[in-house]
Design a protein around this nucleic acid. Structure first.
Lengths: 151, 151
DNA sequence: CTCTTATTGAAAATAATTATCATTATCAGT
DNA sequence: ACTGATAATGATAATTATTTTCAATAAGAG
């Protein structure tokens, strides 16, 4: 019953989950539907509220479990914010970084390919072997800038 | 009784706290002593264990409260790690970024002054007003690289 | 030395996440 | 389609992390 509403991204995610050996259920489909088609950083409780409208018997526990699977499969990633680090967004394709709106938590992606070399250099200077990096920009998206100027 | 052991950094922190209107107590001094003189990312529970050796009646609640004050005053900052974002290190002077060892959680600092312009550019392209950014590099420090090669 | 009031620690309350477990439902192999 | 092994589910309980409450203490200005 969720099937007809599935858009391309959500069905892709479901295929990926299935390919990873997970079974697909209505609960899974509801959570995927909510997170995959979304450009805001969402916390488990928010996802729960939205997804339960698509699958009324859904439990919060299943949201946590599904997020684990999605993270495991590389389909979502955590967003680190000032008020905590428990929100999720669709994982950036390739190695991209996040732009997060402080007001509405909208997320956009950008690539910083040219940064890798710089970071490696920084590591070498300090005897560190750099394995990964983590970069986020915070600010106001265009929508919230207008709101702020108006209100 | 903690006074004789205080090194320069810790006393500086205490002065800063006092200047901000906070009263200084043995509990405060113990927490400051532990965190200020340290180059590893420490969680509240770890700080509690160490600091209680300096001030035996110290309660865990006071560690949380002191960390809040220290963060408020800009003396410590949070470290975001894969397993959570509840560890603290001395705040980087100026606007610096962190290099975190994944094995021992040792932290070093580096400045990326030249990055600000790049980030502003990224924001402009997407209509974002960039207000802040957050960058951490993860890897292995020199000590842990050797250990790994040996073990 | 005194007084005001910030700070403390113990205990309780809250919030967030994880484990337990009997039941249900997916889907591979007929 | 049918069946069986077993992954997934949701309710409940347990655990962990953090915050609140509150009476007692102690810092530090005057």
């Amino acid at each position: 019953m969720l099937t007809q509403n599935n858009t391309t991204v959500a069905t892709e995610w479901l295929d990926r989950l299935k390919a990873s050996g997970y079974r697909l259920t209505d609960s899974t489909r509801a959570v995927v539907q909510v997170v995959a088609e979304n450009s805001f950083a969402l916390e488990p409780a928010q996802i729960f509220i939205s997804a339960r409208q698509l699958s009324p018997h859904l439990g919060l526990v299943t949201v946590y479990r599904t997020l684990d699977k999605l993270e495991e499969t590389g389909l979502v990633q955590r967003v680190h914010q000032l008020n905590g680090c428990h929100a999720y967004v669709p994982a950036a394709p390739g190695h991209q970084h996040l732009l997060v709106c402080r007001s509405c938590s909208r997320v956009e992606y950008f690539s910083g390919d040219d940064l890798d070399e710089l970071f490696g250099q920084v590591g070498r200077e300090r005897g560190f072997l750099i394995q990964d990096h983590w970069l986020q920009l915070y600010g106001l998206c265009s929508v919230c800038q207008k709101e702020e100027a108006a209100g």
